[in-house]
Design a binder for these strands. Structure first.
Ligand SMILES: [Zn+2]
Ligand SMILES: [Zn+2]
Ligand SMILES: [Zn+2]
Ligand SMILES: [Zn+2]
Lengths: 134, 134
DNA sequence: ACTGTAAGTGAAAAATATTTTCATTTAGCA
DNA sequence: TGCTAAATGAAAATATTTTTCACTTACAGT
């Protein structure tokens, strides 16, 4: 329920469509906007899916994963430990990888470049066992 | 010239449009397909830019950088050492970061998951000194 | 509970991005 | 030089995301 409190605190309303998207994302996978829209059987507009994802991302409830094929996927991250992903280039399957050692790099780069680092993205790409056989 | 030999060896022809794209990318920045098209003053079709980038990527001459805003940028990497990027979320500026410590992680993950790892993407995001002032 | 109102919604349109189609052109080999 | 498969580009198709705007709704204040 932390998510709804966060949404309220930011001055946004708790609406039906927003709860639908939240619940859908909480199932734990990494979805595209279209998959969310279709998974919810068009009980809301695709426009609203995009707008909701924008807000949830801004509030840190959802994170965006940009893949090298140009697609964007969204993940509900509240209560999850920071992690990265392993993506199968054959079937698109996404595994979560525990742990992250990028924080040190962030600090080093911050000092070197005078950038204020806000985050990072790391994905590994490969072929899953099943796709290796094909 | 390694690039043209690679293209030939793969059975593709060396054409005017392909040389234009190669030369444009060699200037060293990280461009979108549209920037390449417009930078070349429409002396070739946008379709050809996309097709050429696809081939160059397949041959490892060019690499794709997927940003969390959904955009794709392309970089000529032949002769460059493997590296990652620091992206300013304010102005879009991209710095190159030397070195990479992800190879170890790749091996660890390969063992853990039985995936065959083909590569990885790592980008840091932040605000450049100039954008911090705004 | 009722009401007012600013925020949210969704259909449609617009804008943007990428891929496909297909008639024409061209690189590179015999 | 001529042949042919590959490449090209204009146009159309498809896909993705944003904007517009009239209507609806959450919820703060009574
Ligand atoms: Zn995840
Ligand atoms: Zn991390
Ligand atoms: Zn680079
Ligand atoms: Zn690396």
């Amino acid at each position: 329920m932390k998510d709804k409190a966060t949404i309220k605190k930011a001055g946004y309303k708790i609406t039906g469509p927003r709860q639908l998207v939240l619940d859908f994302l909480k199932s734990g996978e990494h979805y595209t906007a279209k998959e969310i829209y279709e998974g919810l059987e068009k009980t809301l507009g695709l426009t609203t899916v995009y707008r909701t994802l924008e807000i949830l991302t801004e509030l840190g409830i959802v994170e965006t994963i940009a893949l090298t094929d140009g697609s964007l996927r969204y993940e509900y991250v509240l209560g999850k430990k920071h992690h990265h992903h392993l993506v199968c280039t054959g079937c698109g399957d996404i595994c979560e990888l525990d742990g992250c050692a990028i924080k040190d790099l962030e600090e080093k780069v911050a000092k070197q470049t005078a950038y204020v680092i806000s985050g990072h993205a790391l994905e590994l790409y490969g072929l899953c066992p099943r796709c290796q056989k094909k």
